[in-house]
């Protein structure tokens, strides 16, 4: 793939909607199912992923000319692991309560396929700024996905948003249960598919 021709805005929107890491690419599903029980969790992990994605993309796009092609993947892993350690230590120091809630998942960002994939597909072929915006888009897409899931699950499961009581009762406790993550992701994916199908039909109708 040659250097991208998209504008910065298109790159961000692409990450959030068209290639949304959770609902469209179906990568990095573990946290989407595991800890999307509240919006706060989603926000924190989303920010952590955004940080790692942006910084790794920038780092790789800066040093891409010096990376030996044979050790490309190990280098990516090293870069990601470094930034994950940085955010892990920082969060442990600054937000200990939220950090404890997310447990092992912050450390597991290392193994998220989405970050490695973006480095391989995009950052190693583009200059600093497009890589930065692509990182923002992808990280933002992940954040958006996590927030959507958190919104649905927290509202339906606990009747709360960000820990504040909104409804005053609990509509469906089922959604607060850990297993509901699978169902929630499945339903939302189907919803995304439905929107796409309807959108395509309309477009065809207009073109005709």
């Amino acid at each position: 793939m040659p250097a991208t021709t998209k504008t910065n805005f298109q790159l961000v929107i692409n990450g959030i909607l068209k290639e949304n890491p959770i609902f469209r690419l179906a990568l990095s599903m573990c946290p989407a199912v595991g800890i999307s029980t509240t919006m706060m969790n989603g926000l924190m992990l989303g920010i952590a992923v955004l940080f790692v994605q942006v910084f790794s993309s920038c780092t790789i796009s800066l040093v891409k000319d010096y990376i030996h092609p044979r050790i490309r993947i190990p280098t990516y892993t090293l870069v990601i692991a470094t930034w994950v350690t940085v955010i892990d230590l920082t969060l442990a120091a600054l937000a200990p309560v939220a950090y404890k809630q997310m447990g092992i998942f912050i450390k597991l960002i290392v193994a998220f396929a989405i970050i490695t994939m973006r480095l391989e597909v995009f950052a190693c072929k583009n200059t600093l700024w497009p890589s930065f915006w692509d990182g923002v888009g992808m990280g933002g897409g992940f954040l958006f996905g996590m927030l959507t899931l958190g919104f649905v699950r927290e509202l339906l499961g606990a009747g709360q948003l960000f820990g504040y009581d909104v409804l005053g009762f609990r509509p469906l406790l089922f959604f607060a249960l850990p297993v509901a993550g699978f169902f929630c992701v499945g339903f939302l994916m189907a919803a995304f598919n439905y929107i796409e199908i309807v959108y395509n039909k309309r477009k065809k109708a207009v073109n005709r």
Binding site: T82, T85, V86, L89, T90, A92, A93, L94
Partner: peptide, 10 residues
């Protein structure tokens, strides 16, 4: 980098 962050946040 990691060592620096570690000492800074400890």
């Amino acid at each position: 980098i990691m060592g620096g962050v570690f000492t800074a946040t400890e």
